[in-house]
C-alpha cells in the first residue's frame, strides 16, 4: 500500500509531507520505546507511536524512516514538525489507538518488520 492508503484506512490527518503520499510502504513497527526501535529496525519503514518528543523524529532521521503515525490524535509541537519536514518525513495523526491502528493496517496487508531474534532453546525446557 502507499501512505495515502494508510491515511484512508486510519482516517488520518496529514501533518507533514502531503507531496509524498504516493510512497509505497510494506512494513511498520509500533513502539513507544525508541531504544527498541533503534535496536530492531533496519529498514525504511513506518513508525506508529504515541510518543511525541523530539527524539521520535531524531530516531526516524537516523533510521531513514518513511512515515511517522501518531495515535490517539496526538500532534507534536511545531518545532518537532519542522524538523520532520526538514528531513523529508511524512507525519500523520489518527484518532485510533495504537492497537486499533495496527490492526486496521495489518488487515489491509501491512506487515511487521522482521525481528532478528533467536530464542535460547534452553529457556523452553
Amino acid at each position: 500500500m502507499t501512505i495515502q492508503d494508510m491515511v484512508r484506512i486510519l482516517q488520518a490527518r496529514v501533518l507533514i509531507g502531503h507531496e509524498k503520499l504516493d510512497t509505497p510502504v510494506y512494513t511498520a513497527c509500533c513502539s513507544d520505546l525508541m531504544s527498541d526501535v533503534l535496536a530492531f529496525v533496519d529498514e525504511k519503514t513506518v513508525l506508529i507511536t504515541g510518543l511525541t518528543n523530539p527524539h521520535v523524529v531524531r530516531t526516524s532521521e537516523m533510521l531513514d524512516l518513511k512515515c511517522l503515525v501518531f495515535v490517539r490524535g496526538k500532534v507534536p509541537s511545531d518545532d518537532i514538525l519542522e524538523s520532520a519536514e526538514e528531513q523529508g518525513l511524512v507525519v500523520i495523526t489518527t484518532k485510533a489507538t495504537a492497537f486499533s491502528a495496527c490492526g486496521m493496517l495489518y488487515a489491509e496487508g501491512l506487515r511487521g518488520v522482521p525481528v532478528p531474534l533467536e530464542w535460547n532453546t534452553e529457556d523452553d525446557a
Binding site: 531504544s35 527498541d36 526501535v37 533503534l38 527524539h55
Partner: peptide, 15 residues
C-alpha cells in the same frame, strides 16, 4: 520518559 533506558544501546552499537 523519552523512550530510552531499555539497556539496548551498547549491544546495538556493537552490532
Amino acid at each position: 520518559s523519552l523512550g530510552f533506558g531499555a539497556g539496548m544501546g551498547l549491544p546495538n552499537m556493537k552490532r
